[in-house]
Design a protein around this nucleic acid. Structure first.
Lengths: 138, 138
DNA sequence: GTGTTTGCAAAGTGTTTGCAATTTA
DNA sequence: TAAATTGCAAACACTTTGCAAACAC
């Protein structure tokens, strides 16, 4: 049986470990985000999705929650478009394909694309991460 | 002698070829952008720079001009930060190092960093470009 | 002169914030 | 009950747009 009856124990634990109370709003958003794998959402899109499911969550709370989840390591924030943040539920190392026409963001498994070489970086700084974005269109 | 006495003939030609009249504002911005190599500017920053030089150019015109230059192939638009566009005068193929603390954007020569592998992309789409961003911080 | 470009101010978009009311532990 | 969280509306930062005046050809 294991954890079948507690589908969000992982999220619950993670929230607990970073002192985020499992409120109705956070649980509803977590359900939407983590029930299916490898989701890429914008705040606006997640807000609409929640509304469509009948979960009353304000847009401000969606923003707060996405940032809190990101800080907690449950999400990764992806920048592919100025003026709109994406959040990725796949927190493992990988890259992205961005459709500039539709705004769709897709994962590219780490093993499909690799960076060769080591760039010079400024004195006293360290690499936080290396992002590859494959931009596609018609 | 060649073109020594006409330092902006290249830009003038480019502007002409895409039907952009060489106005006082466009020439002032081109001077700031192309006199030094490999510049990375935001609209706001370029606007301030122009003002500091005594060139009266409105912010709206800076935005318009940056986009027109980008369409003309004189600039490349770089997305590294949601909510702020960078424009790069280096239009050759290369990559970027972004300092998340200071907002500084630096070039990484193409030969220092390469992508290995070929990602699956959606049916009917083609790759417009592949960007690598090395994010650094303290 | 004719069509293009500019500057302003207003509008737009995505995001953050202040704070009173609500909820959690 | 004490502390955290929420929702609203206002504030924000960056960018775009509408339109009359100025400019380029």
């Amino acid at each position: 049986m294991l954890n079948r009856t507690r589908p969000f124990s992982h999220v619950l634990e993670q929230l607990r470990s970073v002192n985020l109370r499992p409120t109705r709003q956070r649980l509803a958003l977590a359900k939407l985000l983590f029930e299916k794998p490898d989701r890429h959402v914008t705040a606006e899109a997640l807000h609409k999705e929640a509304a469509a499911e009948g979960a009353r969550v304000s847009l401000a709370t969606v923003y707060n929650t996405l940032h809190q989840f990101t800080e907690a390591g449950l999400l990764k924030e992806i920048t592919v478009d100025a003026g709109c943040s994406y959040f990725d539920t796949n927190i493992t190392s990988h890259h992205h394909c961005y459709d500039e026409d539709t705004g769709a963001l897709m994962d590219i498994p780490a093993q499909h694309l690799q960076v060769v070489g080591s760039p010079a970086i400024p004195e006293g700084k360290s690499i936080r991460r290396i992002d590859i974005v494959v931009r596609v269109g018609e």
